[in-house]
Design a protein around this nucleic acid. Sequence first.
DNA 1: AGGTTATAGTTTGATATCAAACTATGTGCC
DNA 2: GGCACATAGTTTGATATCAAACTATAACCT
Lengths: 164, 164
Amino acid sequence: MRKTNVSGRVRRGKNGEAIAETIRFGPLEYWVGFNLRMAQEHAFQAFSRRSQEIGESPGRFATLTLIARNPGISQTELSHANGRDKSSLTPVVEDLVRRGLVERKRMRQDRRTYRLNVTPAGKKTLAMLTRCARRHERVLDGIIGQRDRKRFLQILKKIAVEVE
Amino acid sequence: MRKTNVSGRVRRGKNGEAIAETIRFGPLEYWVGFNLRMAQEHAFQAFSRRSQEIGESPGRFATLTLIARNPGISQTELSHANGRDKSSLTPVVEDLVRRGLVERKRMRQDRRTYRLNVTPAGKKTLAMLTRCARRHERVLDGIIGQRDRKRFLQILKKIAVEVE
DNA sequence: AGGTTATAGTTTGATATCAAACTATGTGCC
DNA sequence: GGCACATAGTTTGATATCAAACTATAACCT
């Protein structure tokens, strides 16, 4: 395979000689929105690869964690906590139930609502995913550096809460 | 409408009294991956609303900017710059061409490759989107604060490049 | 020249997501 | 009780995305 330049361009001149060029990002270069997307996408892909090794999709992880930490949580509460629309959760929960990782029961007082709980099998899977996530976090920590980590997290949280 | 607590839970006790609870995030609370996703998703949604006001989807923005800043760029180069798979780009470029914002020409030297350029109409649209993005960025800047902004951006870039 | 390998872009199939419409249940008010 | 409205979850339709298979062209090697 010919070596290629990840973020570069190669254009051919009149005589076929390679002219390496660099992509110009213009304002994207220093805009937070774009860089936030790029960072998130790359980090997500990396975690995705890791979690696929143990046969789970990455989206399942936050969902399982939230159910485990909040036994009896409803799907709507879960969707808020997870920052997703409740309708996105329907197939996810269905799958987790089908595979025996989560159980759902109707609430007595309000028969519209489900209560979700992680089964013992779900706890096992969650433990594996958690180990996987910890390794991933260690990599991210290494990139960010101990010194800036706390502030970095604070800012991410602030963005999630305050942007509108 | 009853006032609801965005990230809280309300559970009913035996006598139907409301018991407000707070979601426990467990390790997600201080993990970078999760918070990165939440920040990105919220910021993206906010920009999405803004850009819809002028009738454009937010994904078009980075694409148009990159073409405008790199006249004659190919779709593959564009997909790398944009951090997406080249196949995702096919319908996007098709749409931009159909609406007359971008033109594509076959390269002479390599007839597999297209060269993309922004048309005058595309430049107009891009200018509107750019104003829109600047307003969005000002909001984000306000949240992050001048003092940490530079470092924050550096870290985001570093994550995108180094995570694997 | 001819065969092998690489590359640009498209197609296809799978997944994730949202928003709006829908069903069923619950609450409030008269 | 009964009507209007609110809420929990599902369904449906649209979009975005990836990965793998595909088509077409090009480059490389002998």
